[in-house]
Design a protein around this nucleic acid. Structure first.
Lengths: 270, 270
DNA sequence: AGATATTTGTTCGTATGTATT
DNA sequence: TAATACATACGAACAAATATC
């Protein structure tokens, strides 16, 4: 063991304003850096100046500073790149990333299917309406591709399940193109809740050709309405689609429901 | 139909996720512990068995284990108490806490006032309707108390501002009592966005006796409708309230808007 | 009331790993 | 391959909180 008797006192408790005295140092540093980012108008992709990240700037050790950076990265505000020319960069926060932060929110008091659909019923039509006449050709192509995944009758329960997920993906894809990012985020969040509920997982495994058929039907005329720029009609179609889906889900959910959310081991990397 | 193919993606679909193949040890440990919590059916308030938290259980050092715990705590899933009989406890995640996790989401592409109100206009009435006849006496008392904060005409700009915040608190208080926790969360989230937008902060500072008056008016008849159990009327009143507020905010927001979100230095502690 | 034991929290320095140029 | 710059993990020491005697 090295002799540490000549070492200076581990860290001098630097003066913090009384109000902030109780706050942990990494948190304080993280906030300082975030403040700098906003104040200096840095935007996603910009590199954070090294001076801001120097240990001596904050009178803390490398480890403590690293903690601070970890907080920012966890919040999705920064990302670090290694190697020469690397460093810490400001990063936009993706919807998917943000939703993962909410994984635990409803872990112990999960919303019911009715809860989710009561909101979807009003938001999805609004989304559809707002998209009318605004989708690019590429967006349409992507949506068509998604639909194609469940055009054919499923053979196995697994396939049934995958098709249902693809149906949800259709709605996610729509939401991605929302001008109103807040609306898009909300829709995606609701869908991700549905996806993770085991009740739904079970329901999705059951075959139901009729629903698939009508779902497909709705989505095709929905796309047509959006393409033609008929917002009111798009909203109406989506509303009917949601109502039909809700009725179906509620009927099936009569089956006993167990521990409802499985947001646990979602794959982190790509 | 205009060609919108060059339209900016409303937000980054998923910003170049740097492929994190190798999962970090604290993350792995955090996931293991979370899995244990769910698998063993632990609920908020339960203490996490020490064995799960021992360094040797996970073959890691104390520091690494601490990192794992920090992740869980940051996500709001656990909280720790020091001292004998202390330890790490499972904790429910509060709405406020969850919203803080989303602080950075719209930092660089903030939603507009119109974006927020287009959603509030449909969700708040639904909330009001769902509360009809369901509020306890205590809840009413608390709401009345909040209203009292802006009954009197404000004298200064500061007071004006505080009153506006209290008006928002009124809606938060309503949302807190939602049966549909998801709906409540959504409403609170929207309000917190409003609260943090500097555009709004500026607008809120401007005196507007007429709006205050009508807002007060709406909220009083809203409470009456809720108390009497008249859901339809409550929804209608809320809808009108939202529409009036939106018109006012949009008018005022014509003023140039700058760096819009100030979610930076929010107080962390109680 | 006060000392003590228990349990978690904070920070440090260092050694080693990993990705990029 | 070498150099660069960040990442990960460890172990040690000390601080803070709190129940119990």
């Amino acid at each position: 063991m090295p002799d540490r008797s000549d070492l200076q006192p581990a860290w001098k408790p630097l003066q913090l304003s009384t109000e902030l005295k109780r706050r942990k140092r990494p948190d304080v540093i993280a906030d300082r850096i975030r403040e700098l980012i906003v104040a200096q108008g840095l935007e996603p992709g910009d590199r954070i100046p090294q001076e801001w990240l120097l240990p001596e700037t904050h009178e803390a050790s490398r480890g403590t500073l690293r903690e601070a950076l970890k907080i920012l990265e966890f919040q999705g505000l920064t990302l670090s790149k290694t190697g020469p020319g690397g460093g810490v960069f400001v990063s936009g926060v993706g919807a998917d990333q943000a939703i993962r932060l909410l994984d635990n929110l409803f872990l112990f008091q999960p919303p019911s299917i009715a809860d989710i659909y009561s909101i979807r019923k009003v938001l999805e039509p609004q989304l559809a309406e707002s998209l009318a006449g605004k989708l690019s050709a590429e967006a349409f192509a992507k949506l068509q591709d998604t639909i194609r995944l469940y055009e054919e009758e499923p053979k196995t329960a697994e396939e049934e399940y995958r098709q249902r997920l693809a149906e949800l993906d259709f709605h996610v894809e729509l939401a991605r193109h929302a001008q109103n990012a807040l609306l898009g985020f909300n829709c995606i969040f609701l869908i991700s809740l549905l996806r993770d509920m085991t009740v739904c997982r079970e329901i999705y495994r059951e075959p139901n050709p009729a629903l698939r058929e009508t779902g497909l039907h709705y989505q095709i005329i929905l796309l047509r309405a959006i393409k033609s720029g008929d917002g009111k009609r798009a909203a109406q179609v989506m509303r009917e689609h949601m109502e039909a889906a809700e009725i179906y889900m509620l009927e099936r959910a009569e089956i006993p429901q167990r521990n409802p959310i499985k947001a646990i081991h979602r794959e982190r990397g790509k």
